[in-house]
Design a protein around this nucleic acid. Structure first.
Length: 461
DNA sequence: ATCGGCTCGCGCAA
DNA sequence: TGCGCGAAGCCGAT
């Protein structure tokens, strides 16, 4: 039997997680985990090309697991709406679909043995839970496992070290963009798979032991179709003035695509190509440049942080200068201390902060500039910076539809401890040299009172 | 209204 | 080894 390494495409996106000879299987399994979409998916392409060569069908599998840390009804509902579209979307490429409830390390090896599969192809995830799943599945499989990276524009293999700041990663990413910012092919399976198996994912949530205290967001729909509609709306209305308005929390000028990107319902490449297309159609270059810096530089810096720093969601993940300066001020008096529950209930003395927390709790989203203000204020109202960091992660992951995401962990590390940032003297009480961000910074960008009034109005109605 | 200075550490030039 | 410069700030001088 042929070794898997010999028939895979030579690509920095492809990693063999379990080497070996191809099994005498009847299908290639495509284990869908992070890239929950049927198009613009390099993992699906590798699976289809491999299967076509072996004259086998491709079957996509998704494991709906109840055990994901801090799994909420809100996030799972959004994800499940996306999963509902997948059997149809995959069938247009001749790919089958199986949805199973259970842990990947049980479901995937059992399915691979039962089918039987010649090999398993999956996507990549920079976060700890996804990496652990892949390790455990690889250990239990008896056929090869191949991971294909499809949720970054520039493959992470080109960035083997932890990057210091946007200015260090930007030129490295830029060098690769001419080669990476091109449409991906959409090969169709020549041996179609007709299998459609598994419960309706939204209905299946009823049975899962997830956190029901955080309900789905009213009026927000998950899935590739809703994501595409939002992308088109953003390109038409938000993108042309993005460079002027992205820090204005009272204008809906940001893309709000992060939940769709988080669950892989959209590909960042597809979004970037749409922005470049808009530039050819007359959208100002400065606007597109500012947007692509968020989508590519900042997003892939966050992914690099999570992939290369084992403490990405912990206090130890802050840079040493940040930890040291916070340490020096750990005994500075704090005017008031709140508990996690008081924060979660938006019950502080700060109306602006409470408005942020309220929007987060009801809409599962917050404009970027307010995420920073929100996180930085926690330093003043907790006993230690470790506690501030832990509370930020806890509330981020509980309430945001795009929680448990590399972007969130990087943004918290930036806000609280200056990761990817620099010191800002003079040294101030509590925060030391960490860049301050008070109401003044917000007022420079938008009408803060109008923002608070709008959130309080929505909460009252 | 705009501007420099404030600190730290990286990346590059020399 | 030196030098320029930076995720979204703040303060005070002009």
């Amino acid at each position: 039997m042929q070794a898997i390494e010999q028939i895979l495409p030579e690509s920095p996106r492809v990693t063999v997680l379990r080497p070996g000879a191809l099994g005498a299987g009847r299908a290639i399994l495509l284990w869908v985990q992070r890239a929950q979409r049927a198009t613009c998916n390099h993992a699906a392409n590798v699976a289809v090309e491999l299967a076509n060569r072996l004259r086998l069908p491709v079957i996509a599998v998704f494991c709906l697991t109840p055990s994901y840390p801090r799994a909420t009804w809100r996030a799972y509902h959004f994800m499940a709406e996306g999963l509902q579209e997948m059997p149809g979307a995959f069938s247009r490429r001749g790919i089958g679909w199986i949805l199973r409830i259970g842990e990947p390390e049980e479901v995937i090896p059992a399915l691979a043995a039962g089918t039987p599969a010649a090999a398993v192809v999956t996507d990549q995830d920079p976060l700890r839970p996804g990496r652990l799943w892949r390790e455990r599945v690889a250990a239990r499989l008896s056929v090869p496992l191949v991971a294909v990276e499809t949720d970054v524009i520039v493959p992470t293999a080109y960035l083997p070290k932890e990057e210091w700041a946007p200015r260090t990663i930007r030129p490295k990413l830029r060098r690769h963009l001419p080669h990476e910012l091109v449409p991906v092919p959409e090969p169709v399976a020549t041996v179609p798979a007709r299998v459609r198996e598994g419960p309706d994912p939204v209905a299946a949530l009823e049975e899962l032991p997830i956190d029901r205290s955080v309900p789905p967001v009213a009026g927000l729909r998950g899935g590739a179709t809703a994501g595409r509609a939002r992308l088109e709306r953003f390109i038409a209305h938000g993108l042309p003035r993005y460079h002027e308005q992205r820090l204005n929390a009272t204008v809906d000028g940001t893309s709000r695509l992060s939940p769709y990107l988080h669950f892989g319902q959209m590909s960042p490449l597809q979004v970037a190509l749409a922005a470049l297309e808009a530039e050819r159609n007359g959208v100002p270059q400065a606007a597109v440049e500012a947007f692509l810096d968020e989508l590519i530089t900042q997003r892939e810096l966050a992914i690099n942080f999570c992939l290369r720093n084992p403490a990405y969601d912990q206090y130890a993940g802050l840079p040493s200068w940040g930890q040291e300066t916070l340490r020096r001020h750990v005994h500075d008096p704090r005017p008031v201390i709140y508990t996690l529950d008081e924060f979660a209930a938006a019950a502080t003395h700060d109306r602006v902060w409470n408005a942020c927390q309220r929007q987060m709790a009801t809409e599962g989203w917050l404009p970027n500039v307010l995420r920073m203000y929100w996180a930085k204020q926690l330093l003043y109202w907790t006993r230690t910076p470790e506690e501030a960091h832990a509370i930020a992660v806890e509330l981020n992951d509980r309430f945001f539809v795009d929680g448990r995401d590399a972007n969130g962990y990087a943004q918290i590390a930036w806000s609280i401890g200056g990761r990817h940032d620099r010191p800002f003297p003079p040294e101030k009480p509590v925060i030391g040299l960490v860049r301050p961000m008070g109401l003044g910074a917000l007022r420079k960008r938008f009408d803060v009172a109008a923002y608070v009034a709008e959130i309080e109005r929505r909460a009252g109605s």
